Computed example of a mutant assay.
Amino acid sequence: MIGETLDENDDFGSEKQGSSRELPVVKLDLIRVATQNFSEENKLGEGGFGPVYKGTLTNGIAIAIKRLSRTLGQGLKEFKNEVVLIARLQHRNLVRLLGCCLEGNEALLIYEFMPNKSLDFFLFDSRENEILDWRQCLHIIKGIAKGILYLHGDSRLRIIHRDLKASNVLLDKDMNPKISDFGMAKMFSGNQ
């Protein structure tokens, strides 16, 4: 699965890859197999970035793939921003970026799969919101706060998310919240 490395200074306009930072580059063929060639039944949803698909690797590991056509200028800027920022961040309340793919006309981000979807699914679906009792809500609120505290003050980078909403809080199998979608995030120096 791991190929070349991704250079954060790459302009994403070419297939050139550098080696200043390690981020697994995944071959498009592997992703096509994992998603059954981006089939509709594997489509999880659609965001501003583009469609998101569920994939299953040959070893059985489930992944989520954000897909962007490289012809979209604004989306490409958000793609680069997300790769540069989230690849450097590690916290249990942030979604983990596992790799990326830049082949042909495809720009893809590969994430850990969150089986319980996003927080908005539980908040706005009357059948699902009954699952969220006060204890579970408090657990999710604390997790989101810990993730934001890490971004704003505890990480080596100072990052403001700028798009925190229920649909950008994903829930793992144990209902632990993970902040996602760093396409609009902005990095600041320590005293800004």
Rank of each mutant, 00 (worst) to 15 (best):
M1Y: 12
G3T: 08
E4S: 14
E4I: 09
E4V: 11
D7V: 07
N9K: 09
D11R: 00
D11P: 13
G13V: 08
Q17Y: 07
R21D: 02
E22Q: 14
L23H: 00
P24C: 04
P24W: 04
K27E: 12
K27L: 10
L28K: 14
L30C: 14
I31L: 15
V33W: 07
A34V: 02
A34R: 00
A34W: 02
Q36M: 06
S39M: 09
S39H: 14
E40A: 15
E41F: 05
E41G: 11
E41M: 07
N42Y: 11
N42H: 14
K43V: 02
L44F: 04
L44G: 13
G45I: 02
G45K: 08
G45A: 03
E46M: 11
E46I: 08
E46N: 11
E46P: 00
G48R: 10
G48E: 09
F49M: 12
F49P: 11
G50L: 03
P51L: 03
P51N: 14
V52D: 07
V52E: 12
V52Y: 05
G55D: 05
T56E: 15
T58K: 15
I65Y: 03
R67W: 06
L68C: 13
S69H: 14
L72P: 02
Q74S: 11
G75A: 10
L76R: 10
L76G: 11
L76Q: 13
K80S: 00
N81G: 09
E82N: 11
I86K: 05
A87F: 08
A87C: 15
A87W: 01
A87P: 07
R88L: 09
L89C: 03
H91A: 04
H91P: 07
R92E: 15
N93E: 09
R96N: 13
L97T: 02
L98T: 06
C100P: 01
C101Q: 02
E103S: 12
E103K: 10
G104I: 07
N105M: 11
N105F: 05
E106P: 04
L109A: 05
I110W: 03
Y111H: 08
F113H: 10
M114D: 04
P115M: 05
N116S: 08
K117I: 04
L119Q: 02
L119T: 00
D120A: 10
F121I: 00
F121N: 06
F121A: 06
F122G: 01
F122N: 00
F124P: 00
F124N: 12
S126T: 14
N129M: 12
N129T: 14
D133G: 12
W134V: 10
W134R: 12
Q136P: 00
C137K: 13
L138K: 09
I140K: 00
I141D: 04
K142R: 14
K142E: 10
I144V: 15
L149F: 06
L149C: 12
Y150S: 03
L151T: 02
L151S: 00
H152C: 13
H152N: 09
G153E: 15
S155E: 12
R156C: 13
R158F: 07
D163W: 00
L164H: 04
K165P: 05
S167R: 01
S167C: 08
N168I: 01
L171Q: 05
K173T: 10
D174L: 08
P177M: 07
D181C: 06
F182Q: 03
G183Q: 02
G183H: 04
K186F: 01
F188L: 15
F188N: 07
S189G: 14
S189C: 08
G190E: 15
N191T: 11
